[in-house]
Design a protein around this nucleic acid. Structure first.
Lengths: 215, 215
DNA sequence: CCTTCTCGGATACCGGCACTATCCAAGCAT
DNA sequence: ATGCTTGGATAGTGCCGGTATCCGAGAAGG
C-alpha cells in the first residue's frame, strides 16, 4: 500500500499523513526506492488510532507521540507499558501547593479515599495524574464558593468504581495482550466522551422526568 | 473596586481582564470618569466563573460568551435559559450521515435508548448535542473495529443515570434560582473533570486490586 | 528513448486562539 | 508642576494542527 492508498482508506489527507510521519506518530513505511514507500495494515490501524486520539479525544500531538512511545517500548513489561501510556495522557496543570483552596481540596480528597477504603489509590496519591487533576478540579469548585466535600463526592466515587469494574471486565474479554493495550488506550480516550455523552443524556432524561420539557 | 484590584483579587492579569471585557465575557464596569471604572463583587464572581470555564473546563472563549449570553437573557423563562446555556456548551462535530459507521452507531444508540426506556431522550434525539456526540464517539470506536453495542453500553448508561439523579438532587438543595443556574453550569463544566478524575482513580484502584502494582 | 504523470520528501506557510505588550491621553497624588 | 497610575485601543506573540508549494526520482505509455 502506498501513501495515496493509505490516505484514501483512512480518509486522512496525504499532507496530514506526511505531517504525522514527520512528527513520529506513524512509523516510516518500508522504503522500496527513493520515491516509493510501502505501508501495511498495521500502519492503517495505527493511523486510525492516532486520528481517534487527536480528533475524538482532543489529545495534543506531542502527547500522542509520548503515549505511543510507551506502547512501543519493548524494554518494559507489558503492564508497566500500559500504565505508563495511560499516565502520560492527561494534561494536568500542577496544583499550586501554596493555594489555600488547593490545600483544602487535598484534605477533602484524602478524606474521601479514607471513607471509601481505596487503599491503593492512597498509595498512588503523590504520583497519579488522576489524583492531581481531581485536586485541581475540587479546588476550582471551592474557589467559586461551592463546597464539594467528601460526603458529597463519595456516592459519585462509588458509581465511578462500578464503572471501572465494568471497564476491566470488558478489557479482560480481549484475549491478546496487544489488543488489550490498544483497547485500554481507546477506553481512556474514547470511552470517556461516550461516558460524558451518556451522562448528559441521562441528565436530560432525568430533568424531563422531573420537570417535563418546560413548555 | 478598580481594574487593578479586580486583578489582584482574582489572580488574573489586567491585560487578560481587558481582553475578557473586549470579548464581552465580562460586563463593563461603572464608568466614573474617562480614566476610571468601578467594578463590584458581581464582576469578581463572574470573572472567576469565566476562568473556571476556560481553564478547568477548557471551554473556548466564543462558547463562554454564548453560554453567558443565555444566562443573562432575561427575555426567556429560567428553565429554558438554563437548557439553552447547557446546550451551547459542547463543541460537537456534526456526524456525517453518509458514513456507514455513523449509521450503525445511530442504530446502536437508538437500540440502547429503547432498552433503557429513556423515552424523553428519544424525543430529544434529533436536537440534543449530547445525543449527537454520543453517536460520533460510538462511530469512532466502531471504525477502529471495536463493537460498542447497546448491550455493552446499557450498564454504563444505568450508572450514568444514577449519577444524573445525584446531580439533580444536589442542585435542588440550592434555594435560589440564580444559584441553581450557576451551579448547573458549573456542574456541567467542573463536575465532569471531577467525575473523569474519579473514574481514572477508580480504574487505578481496581487495577491494583486485581493485578497488584505490577512490580 | 523521450515525454508526461505521479510519487514521496523537505520546507515554508497559514489560520485560529488565548493572550500580551505597547502606546496614549486623562487624571490623581505629592 | 511633575511623575505615576489608570483604562482604552491596537498590534503583536507563541503555539498548534495542519496545508501548499516545490523538487527531483522513478513509473507508464507511445
Amino acid at each position: 500500500m502506498r501513501l495515496a492508498e493509505l490516505s484514501t482508506r483512512s480518509g486522512v489527507s496525504t499532507a496530514t499523513i506526511k505531517y504525522y510521519l514527520r512528527e513520529g506518530l506513524l512509523p516510516p513505511g518500508r522504503q522500496i526506492n527513493t520515491t516509493t514507500a510501502e505501508y501495511d495494515e498495521e500502519h492503517l490501524r495505527r493511523l486510525r488510532l492516532v486520528r481517534a486520539m487527536i480528533q475524538v479525544g482532543r489529545v495534543p500531538v506531542a502527547t500522542v507521540r509520548e503515549v505511543l512511545g510507551h506502547v512501543d517500548d519493548d524494554s518494559l513489561p507489558r503492564t508497566i507499558r500500559l500504565g505508563a501510556a495511560l499516565w502520560s495522557l492527561p494534561q494536568v496543570p500542577e496544583p499550586d501547593e501554596d493555594d489555600e483552596y488547593v490545600q483544602a481540596a487535598q484534605q477533602e480528597v484524602a478524606a474521601l479515599l479514607d471513607r471509601l477504603g481505596w487503599e491503593n489509590a492512597k498509595q498512588l496519591a503523590t504520583i497519579s495524574p488522576a489524583y492531581r487533576s481531581l485536586v485541581v478540579s475540587v479546588a476550582a469548585f471551592r474557589r467559586l464558593g461551592y463546597g464539594w466535600g467528601a460526603e458529597l463526592m463519595a456516592p459519585y466515587a462509588e458509581l465511578m468504581h462500578r464503572t471501572a469494574v465494568l471497564d476491566l471486565d470488558n478489557m479482560e474479554t480481549h484475549p491478546s495482550e496487544e489488543e488489550r493495550i490498544e483497547f485500554a488506550i481507546l477506553g481512556a480516550i474514547i470511552n470517556e466522551p461516550i461516558l460524558q455523552s451518556l451522562h448528559r443524556l441521562a441528565q436530560e432524561e432525568e430533568t424531563a422526568r422531573r420537570y417535563g420539557f418546560g413548555e
